[in-house]
Simulated scan of single mutants.
Amino acid sequence: MDKEESVTLAGEIMLDFAAQTGVSREDKPQRRYLWTDAFAVCNFLELYHHSQDEKWLLLALRLVDQVHQTLGRHRPDTAKSGWLSGLSEEAGERHPTRGGLRIGKKMEERAPDEPMDERLEWERDGQYYHYLTKWMRALTRTSRVTGEACYLRWGMELAQTAHRAFRFSDGPDGALGLHWKMSGDLRRSLVPSVGQHDPLDGLVTCCEMVCAARHFPDQELPELGREIGELTQMCRSRDFSTSDSLGIGGILVDACRTGELIINEAFQDLALFQCMVNDALLSLEDLGPGFIDQPAKYRLAFRELGLSIGLKGTARLARLFEEYPDVRGGELAEWLQPRLEAMLWFQKMSGKIERFWIEEKRKGTEHWRSHGDINMVMLATSLAPGQFLRAN
């Protein structure tokens, strides 16, 4: 499938998503889910970038507003109402991310006196740090495409809020970490365990927002120095390798974005970048290509599509350093070359993953429909990943 065919199919998928989840049709109830919607905003922006058709930009902006109006407020089935931040209606409209954003799960979050049920916790609402970072990215890309600083400001305010709420210090040495899941009002931890890649994703995203702020020199935007410093500290000597296909895709995407930030002199920690690349390659080699030959019932589309998106990021990273080989005196490109060549060997998996799930979507199988919204959106991202992978 060539690029034009991929973009065309991505557009068809996103129009279907917009109609089904209430973005484009007022007669459809809204189904807002933060992870899915963050990818969707980037997809709409990429389709606008490719075609210059205003309908895609309008869908992106409408979805941003719907997410803030829905997930930035308390659930309608609870006693609380209004913005999660507790701000007045008027102030909340100006700062819709100051209280964070709910996940969008169907079940209400666990009550303070309710015992933990690990299985049910996956179905309950609250706030995830790694979902918030995805929304920060969506807002940053919206700001760059529209030239309007308000979206970047909301992303940076969300970064401050998330860091303040999820950050904890533990142990005799005061080691810093990020809780996995917080309550909707960010007042209590629901799952205290630490996400393996959350600090890395937060660091790269904060650096990206600081880089984007250069394009708005006349704007007073939030400072993220403390957040970047502490997230860097959390990433020190951390093992990012994983056997999870979605996690591997996430490291590859972060490596792609970090490479672009290094080229733009917006990321200084080369040792951390090299760690990302090494751990991503190790994870790919351990995973191997065999898993994509299994029947659909043993596979999850959105997790595999996350890997496919990451592999597209590897190809983009290789192109960037071909275009800018002299960054940091050329030593970085020389170090990268053999590792990128090794990672690009896995590139063929991306096409196989896409073709498999395009066929499952066409047939409307249960394995596709069980996570239909997120599957649609991440397939579209894999087909047209430009805006999701960009860091500047």
Rank of each mutant, 00 (worst) to 15 (best):
H163I: 02
W154A: 10
L152G: 08
R102E: 03
E89M: 10
L132W: 03
W154I: 05
T205L: 03
G147I: 09
A149T: 04
S143E: 04
H215Y: 15
E118K: 14
L178F: 06
P112V: 07
Q219F: 05
A175Y: 07
E89K: 08
G171E: 11
A138I: 01
R164L: 08
S143Q: 05
R164A: 12
R94M: 14
H95P: 02
L186Q: 15
Y131S: 04
D125T: 03
L203W: 01
T97A: 12
W180K: 13
E208M: 12
R119Q: 11
Y128D: 01
A165I: 05
T161P: 09
F216T: 05
G202W: 01
R188S: 14
R144M: 12
W180P: 02
L186P: 11
H179R: 15
H215S: 13
Y151D: 01
R137P: 00
A149L: 00
V204D: 01
A165R: 03
D117T: 00
L200K: 05
D173A: 13
A165P: 04
P199M: 08
C150H: 13
W122D: 08
R141Q: 13
R144I: 13
D113M: 08
T133Y: 07
L120Q: 10
M116E: 11
R187N: 13
H130Q: 11
G177A: 10
A213G: 03
A149G: 00
E118H: 11
D117V: 04
L186F: 08
E90D: 15
L152I: 10
T205G: 08
G202F: 02
H215Q: 11
C211H: 12
M136A: 14
G202R: 00
H179W: 09
D173K: 10
A91V: 15
H130I: 00
L178R: 05
T205W: 01
F166W: 06
S88C: 07
R153P: 06
R187H: 15
P199W: 13
E118R: 14
L158C: 07
E108H: 09
V210I: 07
V191Y: 15
G184S: 15
M156F: 02
H197G: 05
A213D: 04
E118G: 00
K105D: 05
L186R: 09
E108R: 13
D170Y: 14
P112A: 03
C206L: 02
L87I: 02
M156C: 08
M209W: 00
R167E: 06
A111E: 09
F216A: 09
K106R: 12
W154D: 14
V191N: 12
T146W: 06
R153G: 04
E148M: 10
G99Y: 07
T133A: 11
S88R: 03
T140E: 15
E118I: 12
E220A: 09
L203A: 06
D113R: 12
E90G: 10
C206I: 00
E90W: 05
D113P: 02
E109A: 09
V210N: 07
Y128R: 07
A149M: 06
A159R: 06
V194T: 14
V194I: 11
H179M: 05
Q160W: 01
R124V: 01
L152D: 04
Q219E: 13
Q196Y: 06
L190K: 04
E208R: 14
S169D: 10
